[in-house]
């Protein structure tokens, strides 16, 4: 929760460093987020016709939470695909989807959250709305830390256990996370699809109303809290976070150079204690800490070889 207040402090004094390339006032992160959002939702005809893409690329999982029922989606959402696989009639271990998730996780960690996720972009833009942000007192900090475990519960229960074992009266195993929680699906899939498809609008009932309420709650929270969905609810972020400590993409802090100004922690959108645990499961690798460090003590990049890995660890 501390990041909520910290972020506000730093946004009042924007400072640009060579490590943070900008194009006409837009940060490198924002550029990549926009390009990624367009690439994973590149089937523009779908938005116009209210239909989804049915080409071969839908067999490939994208590294982000992006509903495959979004009219523009060119790939499959890994969390949707995982629920379908564990709840499928064949009932086997989902090698393909789990392998894809592990591959993204071990290479990038949560880089996908910070740079590639369209719903992360939506939350980042909402947090830019200039309203008073909540102060981070000890109680809020504690509540924030506790609430962050919720995403792991959602990953275990709504994405894996319930779709695997909870069979409905009609004999199906629904994708519980998609059905009852996912606000990214409601925004990217539900609303956009219904906007172009009158037949679907007529089918909307109480469940759709519930999902709209969840979406509104998350979007409203994003105005006051930096990335609330990523912090507390996202099962994909929870999964990738497990890899942050040993992914090939690593952040590192040179403690000899660090001057202890804590600017990195003030600017962190996820309220990570950068000087204590720079590769925390909460870090979305956005690079804001690196850009703001006056001593150049923070670096990031891909580890290239086992030898270099050992050298990095020895630092």
């Amino acid at each position: 929760m501390s990041g909520m207040h910290r972020n506000r402090i730093n946004r009042s004094k924007p400072k640009r460093y060579p490590d943070s390339p900008r194009l006409k006032g837009m940060s490198f992160q924002r550029m990549v987020q926009l390009v990624s959002a367009v690439l994973v939702n590149g089937y523009l005809v779908g938005f116009q016709k209210g239909k989804i893409y049915t080409g071969g690329t839908k067999a490939v999982c994208v590294p982000v939470l992006n509903c495959y029922s979004c009219p523009g989606a060119l790939g499959a959402c890994p969390i949707g695909a995982l629920q379908t696989a564990v709840g499928g009639i064949r009932g086997h271990f989902p090698f393909y989807v789990m392998g894809s998730l592990m591959l993204f996780g071990i290479i990038l960690g949560r880089v996908a959250c910070g740079f590639l996720c369209p719903f992360g972009l939506v939350q980042d833009l909402l947090y830019k709305i200039p309203v008073p942000k909540p102060e981070a007192g000890p109680k809020l900090k504690k509540a924030d830390r506790t609430a962050r475990y919720l995403k792991y519960v959602i990953l275990a229960a709504a994405v894996i256990l319930l779709p695997a074992f909870a069979v409905t009266k009609s004999g199906v195993r629904p994708p519980y996370f998609c059905k009852y929680i996912c606000p990214a699906g409601t925004l990217g899939g539900g609303l956009t699809l219904m906007a172009g498809n009158p037949a679907l609008r007529e089918l909307a009932g109480p469940l759709f109303l519930w999902k709209i309420l969840v979406l509104i709650a998350v979007l409203a929270a994003a105005i006051f809290i930096s990335r609330p969905f990523c912090r507390y609810l996202c099962p994909l972020g929870a999964f990738y976070g497990l890899f942050n400590r040993f992914s090939f993409f690593q952040m590192s802090l040179n403690k000899d150079r660090c001057v202890g100004c804590k600017k990195c922690e003030h600017v962190c959108p996820m309220a990570v204690e950068v000087t204590e645990n720079i590769n925390s499961p909460e870090c979305i690798r956005c690079g804001k800490c690196k850009a703001v460090c006056p001593a150049g003590a923070i670096s990031s990049g891909l580890v290239q070889s086992p030898k270099q890995s050992r050298e990095d660890m020895a630092k």
């Binding site: 959402c77 379908t84 699906g185 899939g189």
Partner: peptide, 14 residues
Amino acid sequence: VMQKAVKICLECIG
């Protein structure tokens, strides 16, 4: 994965 992704997922959209 493809079989699921090429059909509109009614649960996903609410």
